[in-house]
């Protein structure tokens, strides 16, 4: 898979978590991220290793939380996407 597609998938996952208020249950993430279970697990593991997501609890249940690094990634992603859209890249 080309790295740019990977970047898009990562951004989509983090956006889903952000839109859920910064934390989300695994089943909700699976539903909204539009990925297979194995693919999502691979990405989430990578994001946890990269420090953009952490595993914690929400309402007593297991949940993924967006970290500051995750928020930074999303901010940069939006900035570069805006730039890309403006210049038609």
């Amino acid at each position: 898979m080309k790295k740019r597609e990977r970047t898009e998938v990562v951004a989509d996952i983090l956006l889903v978590v952000q839109q859920a208020g910064g934390s989300i249950k695994p089943t909700h993430l699976l539903y909204k991220a539009n990925l297979s279970h194995d693919a999502l697990k691979r990405y989430v593991d990578e994001l946890e290793k990269g420090g953009m997501l952490t595993t914690g609890e929400k309402n007593g249940k297991r949940a993924y939380h967006l970290t500051d690094k995750g928020y930074d990634f999303l901010a940069k992603y939006r900035q570069f996407r805006d730039f890309s859209d403006a210049f038609g890249i």
């Binding site: 080309k2 740019r4 970047t7 992603y77 730039f83 890309s84 210049f87 890249i89």
Partner: peptide
């Protein structure tokens, strides 16, 4: 400035299109 921004976008996305731009 445009060049710098383009370069940063290229490093972020790692996509040939940004490199050409």
């Amino acid at each position: 400035l445009v060049t710098t921004m383009g370069w940063r976008a290229y490093k972020f996305f790692d996509e040939e299109r940004y490199k050409t731009f």
